[in-house]
Design a protein around this nucleic acid. Structure first.
Lengths: 344, 344
DNA sequence: ACTGACTTTGGGATCGATCCCAGGAATCAA
DNA sequence: TTGATTCCTGGGATCGATCCCAAAGTCAGT
């Protein structure tokens, strides 16, 4: 029925149909410049009639604005990341920007490739929740006039605003809560010391306990982000000569292994052990008992990052000095943490 | 230190630095056309020297290929969708395509806006796991030469290949498994009849039971995709005059409400009730007991959709007749389903 | 040395929208 | 009526890469 158009309608076609010049048609459809009301109506009608569709590439070539952005992150499986991706995309869309998604798998080399193609694409801005490598490349891109926002992680010397979680504060919140509940022997299961969050959370935990005079080396276990490590770690920590009455699990994936293991070992939460985990897989609330957590605020991080990027993409916005933002951590107390009970 | 470049280097700059013409520089850097090895080396060196970066907009304007694609889906919170987004993006990247992510929130109007901007952007192809509305718009876009693949859902009359889950077969698998375990009273908690999956899964369930002569109206509950509905539904079904010995929960979100409710009611799985759920939130494996599921194969759906899109985007690829693909469902038997036990 | 075939190179034209400038119409004050 | 000002409109030039055609260079075979 419908014949396949050989060629999309262009502004010239619209202009011809409306009986005006290219320039006038452009003024109407781009919204820039003054046009009489009558002409405007005629052009809009003509555009609809010929089925006009903007050719972004042509506009971009002339204006050198793409209204495209990029989001670079490790994966979407981690709850923090898919929340970030969804919210950032929707906020950017409200401001008229499209978002190119780049999932790096945590590989610095892939990240570099993605940054390269984003630059070629001429994106107006990039949000990087990345490896922290490729700093030079980011600086080059930034120097070419592309807005940059660093999210969650930020390499030393990276250009643009930084929107960071409060890992240290979150750890302090969890540890202090357990101290306030009367616990003194408080275990720590965390991520590797090489990672940003692994370091910051550990420092928050340690300094809080030191201040309380309750820090003990033998209750600290740090390892890879995996459920298996969590299962092993929780077993190890309970085998200690003087086992803890509470544990703070700062390693997200490790908690997936630790919780079922505790159940299988018939360790009752919170009677035998108080537990606070870090970050929110949606299902911790369904656990028995519901698991207390430190929430780093993925939603707020995403919203802030998007709004900072939008601000930086405004013409001239890149000139501002880079700023650092911290989204505060929040303690969500649920059934897995309770006042210490005297050992039977 | 580094001065801010006023203007990005262009092919003309590269050509000048290499002492050749624009055309030759273009031939080298685009990889089209024959160039002597010596010239090629000179051009590449010049490109690196001046810091040349391709201007995609200019290339697109000339070639009318963008190497951009779009992925349209409801949300990223649902595990199926974020798995799809991650895999599709990575497969497309391997083939050299960038992917614009569009999260619609299930709103047909937003979806229409996104499709419009994707068309303006001139994407080479779109994967839609969408509302099933906006069929006319999809047809217009398709007629303009954009490849389309419908994923998971597909509106009647939508253009392009369809890559669908086997909802009906999955339901049959679950129901037949429960029958094979000796159950006769098998409950159903599913999604609304207006939804594709709600309809197909119910039909699979019902026809399997009918064939076995075991279908009973009073054990069927269909409602919204929410944990609350699941909690209510499981309570209602257990209050039946003659309660079921097994239940198939075809409504993903409902299972989040049903499982904790069963625990709170002290209904032991699988002794008091066998249970099979549909689709895989990662944590069902950690439940006590681990929950048997029907896996619709999000990974396979995503890979197939990506490869079909890539095929359709090959020049001339759109001419093929649209095809429908079904990714088979798979039963993952875990601890929550077991042979029926004679009632005490 | 000459022809024909092939390889390599250069430059004009082009994709489609916007910018810039100039000219004509309309408005207003003197 | 005239001149100054503002408003609207049209057309040439432009963004940067690629396409197309023609010219120049290379080589083998006679």
């Amino acid at each position: 029925m419908a014949s396949i158009p050989i060629r999309r309608a262009t502004l010239v076609d619209v202009a011809a149909a409306a009986g005006v010049s290219r320039s006038t048609a452009s003024r109407v459809l781009s919204g820039e410049g003054a046009v009489s009301a009558e002409t405007e109506a005629r052009v809009r009608a003509a555009a609809a009639e010929v089925g006009y569709l903007l050719n972004s590439a042509a506009r971009t070539l002339r204006t050198s604005r793409t209204m495209l952005t990029g989001l670079v992150l490790n994966n979407l499986v981690n709850a923090t990341f898919h929340v970030v991706a969804e919210i950032v995309q929707q906020r950017l869309a409200l401001a008229g920007y499209r978002m190119i998604l780049c999932v790096t798998g945590g590989q610095a080399a892939e990240e570099a490739d993605y940054l390269q193609t984003l630059a070629e694409q001429g994106v107006d801005g990039i949000i990087v929740a990345g490896s922290g490598a490729n700093i030079d490349q980011l600086n080059t891109i930034h120097a070419n006039g592309t807005a940059i926002v660093n999210l969650i992680r930020a390499g030393k010397g990276a250009p643009g605003d930084r929107v960071l979680a409060s890992d240290r504060d979150g750890a302090v919140l969890a540890t202090q809560e357990l101290l306030d509940l009367g616990h003194r022997r408080i275990g720590y299961i965390g991520g590797p010391a090489q990672t940003n969050s692994g370091r910051e959370r550990f420092h928050g935990y340690r300094s809080t306990l030191r201040t309380a005079g309750a820090f003990a080396d033998d209750l600290v276990l740090r390892g890879p982000f995996s459920p298996d490590f969590g299962a092993e770690a929780i077993k190890a920590i309970l085998r200690a000569p003087e086992p803890p009455s509470a544990v703070y699990i700062a390693n997200h994936e490790a908690s997936f292994g630790a919780l079922p293991t505790l159940r299988d070992l018939k360790v009752r939460l919170p009677d035998d052990l108080s537990l606070i985990a870090h970050d929110e897989p949606s299902w911790f609330q369904y656990w028995d008992p519901a698991v207390s957590i430190v929430d780093s605020g993925a939603t707020e991080l995403a919203e802030l990052a998007a709004s900072r990027l939008i601000a930086a993409m405004r013409p001239g916005g890149t000139d501002d000095k880079p700023r650092e933002f911290r989204v505060g951590a929040r303690l969500v107390t649920r059934g897995s943490s309770a006042p210490v009970t005297p050992r039977a």
